[in-house]
Amino acid sequence: LGDGLRPGGLPDAGDELQIAELYTLGRLVRKAREVGVQTMVEGPGHVPIDQIAAQVKLAKIATDNAPFYVLGPLVTDIFPGYDHITAAIGGAIAALNGADFLCYVTPAEHLGLPTVEHVREGIIAAKIAAHAVNLTRFEADFKKDYLMSLARGRLDWAKQFELSQDKERFIEIRRKRPTKTEACSMCGDLCAIKLINDMLQKR
């Protein structure tokens, strides 16, 4: 069930029309359930960061806890070209407060039709937001980050690559920013992990 009166910008978030429509969607959810039709409810696209939790919780109440998905929501309107990032910030907060699905937003949002690369960037940003919440809830998700932490502590690049969720970007940056040591090119021989490992091996 789509929300045609969802806010198209931050000043409209939570206005009377949006909330009235939300309760109308709740009535439609109940009617659909009465005849055995599954529903999910679309949520807002632009919401100030301090209103996201309340909006999600209100939506879940108004729709009898129907599956709720959000278009971001975008937490600022003045960074065109970066709406995948503003949406990921809002998406993480929304998911933490009960949103069930995140709709990806591309960098081209509000500017033009997205390219394949824009779609890729939007999906990655949404996956980051979702995983940031999921790892606080599911042991399997947290374990991935735990293993990555161990791999970084061992400067185990093969394992880091294996665990990386965007292997193409991993390889791209490693190739463009090479290093002559086993540490990355950020610190090189001055890498704190490398120095500690070297000291431990000398003991």
Rank of each mutant, 00 (worst) to 15 (best):
S149C: 15
T106V: 08
E117M: 12
V116F: 10
A126Q: 00
I124V: 15
A108R: 01
V105G: 01
E121F: 00
H118F: 04
M148K: 07
P107E: 03
Y146R: 09
S149E: 15
L135M: 14
A132P: 02
L113T: 09
M148G: 09
V105H: 04
Y146M: 12
H118I: 01
A140I: 10
D141L: 03
A126W: 05
M148A: 11
I128L: 14
A130L: 13
S149G: 13
L135C: 11
R137D: 07
I123Y: 03
E109Q: 03
K127Y: 08
A132V: 10
I128A: 08
Y146D: 10
L147P: 00
V133G: 04
H118C: 10
I128N: 09
M148T: 07
L135I: 08
G122F: 01
N134M: 14
V105L: 03
E117W: 02
D145V: 05
I124K: 03
E139K: 14
A130N: 12
I123G: 00
F138S: 15
K127M: 13
L135T: 09
F138A: 10
H118R: 06
A126L: 08
A130D: 05
K143D: 14
G122I: 00
I123P: 02
K127A: 07
L147G: 04
A126S: 10
I124F: 10
N134Y: 12
E139H: 06
L135G: 06
D145R: 15
A125Y: 06
T106M: 01
H131L: 05
G122N: 00
L113K: 12
E139A: 14
Y146T: 09
L135Y: 06
I128T: 11
I124A: 09
I128C: 14
A132Y: 07
D141N: 14
V119G: 03
A130E: 11
F142G: 04
P114N: 13
D145Q: 02
V105R: 02
A130F: 08
D141K: 12
R120F: 04
A132K: 11
T136S: 12
N134G: 10
V119I: 14
T106C: 03
L111R: 14
E109G: 00
A129I: 09
F138W: 11
K143P: 04
E117C: 08
L147T: 01
L113C: 14
E121Y: 04
L111I: 14
R137Q: 13
V105A: 04
E121N: 08
E139F: 07
V119Q: 05
V116S: 14
F138V: 12
A108P: 07
I128D: 03
I124T: 04
T115L: 03
A129P: 02
E139V: 05
H118W: 06
V133Y: 11
Y104W: 00
R137G: 07
A125V: 06
R120E: 10
A125I: 06
A132Q: 07
I124M: 10
D145E: 11
A129M: 05
A140Y: 08
E139Q: 13
R120K: 15
L111C: 11
P107Y: 02
K127Q: 09
E139W: 09
A126D: 02
A129Y: 02
I123T: 05
P107V: 01
L111V: 15
Y146C: 09
